[in-house]
Simulated scan of single mutants.
Amino acid sequence: MKSRLHAHVGTIRQLEILLAVHDKGSINEAAKALFLTQPTVSIQMKKLTDAIGAPLYNYANRQLVFTDIGLELVKTAVEVLDSFARLDMSLGNIKDFKSGTLRLAVVTTSKYFIPHLLGPFCEQYPNIDIQLKIGNREQTIERLKKGVDDFYVFSHPPVDMDTESIEILRNPLVAIAHEDHPIAKVKNLTLKDLSAEPFLMREKGSGTRYAIEEFLKQHNAKLNVKMTIESNEAIKHSVMSKLGISILSAHTLTYGGQSGLARLPVKELPINSHWFFVWSKSKRPTLLAAKFLAHIETNGRALLQQEMIKTGISYNQTNK
C-alpha cells in the first residue's frame, strides 16, 4: 500500500514555518521573521507535530533542539519548497530568473570573498533572494548533512559524504605577529622558531584549526597554544594587543584589515589550502542553483582570482 503520509503531513505554510523555526532556532525569532504572532507559530508547530505523531523538537538548557524525526521533516520541507520554487520559476519567465532563492552555507573565513562572487550574479539577476549562513566547519558540515542549502564552501571538504565539488580559489594560511614583536624583525624564520611563542588558535570545528593541525602532524611539530578563540577578528585584535602570534588565512588579513600586524616569513609556510564549492549529489539542484554554478565555473572563478591578485595574494606562491 502506498504511503498516505502526504495526506496529513501539514500545509505548505506549516512547512515554511517549520523551516523558519529551524533556521532561527526559536519560536519567537521565527514569528518575527515571518511577521506572525508567537502563538500562531506555536499552534502551527503543534498541528504539524500531531500530524507526524512524534515530537519535532525538544528544549535542552532553554535551547530548541530538533529531533531526528524533526530533521528528516526539515530536509523534506526544503525539497518540497524547492519543488514549488522550481514550479514558480517555470511558470514565470525562466530565462530572466525573475524569482527564486539561492541558499549558501559557508565557513567563517570565506565570508571575505563570497560577496565578490554574489555581487556580479545579483546584478545580473536583481530579483532573486540570497540566504547566506555563516558558521565554522563543523556547523557547515551539519547543514550539509541535512541538505538544507544549495551550496557549501569549505577549505577542506568532508571526505566521508556523497558530494561533488569544484575548486575555486587558493587559501594560503600565513603566520602573523604584532608589528613590534621581536620575532617580526627576524628575516628568516622556521616553524621551530614559532614553537616557544604564545599561540592563538581557532576553536575546534574550525577549518583553519583543522588545516593547522594537519600541517603540524606532517611536520611533526607543536605550537604553544595559550588561547582558543572563536573568531578571526578576535584573533587579529588579540595579536594586535600583543597576546601572542597566530596563523590565519591571507584572505582574513587582506579583506579584514591588517593594521598593526606583520606577516612572518616562515620557511615552511604558507599552508597551501584551497576553497571549494561543495554540493550534495542526492539533492536535485534548483534552476537558480544550476545557473549560479555555471556563473562560478565561468566568470566567478576568474573574477575571484583577479581580485586576489589585486589585493596581493599570489597564485604562484608555494612552500619554500
Rank of each mutant, 00 (worst) to 15 (best):
V78W: 15
R13E: 15
K75A: 15
L91P: 00
T109N: 06
R86L: 13
K187S: 12
P39Q: 07
E197C: 09
L15M: 14
D160R: 02
T228E: 14
F154W: 01
A294M: 13
S110A: 11
T49K: 06
G300D: 05
P265N: 11
F84R: 08
N220D: 11
S42G: 08
D96V: 15
K192L: 09
V159N: 13
D96N: 13
K204I: 15
L200P: 01
P55S: 00
G10L: 05
N127G: 09
L15W: 13
H6R: 08
P126R: 02
D129L: 09
V278D: 00
D68M: 05
S314T: 10
L200D: 01
N299D: 15
I183F: 02
P285C: 07
A31M: 09
Q218I: 15
A30W: 11
S99I: 11
P158M: 00
T252S: 07
A234M: 13
F35Y: 15
K2I: 09
F113E: 01
A211C: 12
D88T: 14
S99R: 10
T11L: 07
K320P: 15
V225M: 00
I166S: 02
D23Y: 08
V9C: 10
L15Y: 13
K217P: 04
K222Y: 05
N171E: 14
A262R: 04
G70P: 01
L73H: 05
I212A: 03
S273F: 09
L34I: 12
L200F: 05
S206D: 12
I114P: 01
P285V: 08
M308I: 04
R301T: 14
T254Q: 06
K267M: 14
C122D: 01
F292E: 04
A196W: 09
I27C: 03
E268D: 02
S282W: 08
N316D: 14
L173R: 11
A196C: 10
S195D: 07
Y152R: 04
V174A: 10
A289C: 05
G100Q: 05
K145R: 12
K222I: 10
L71W: 04
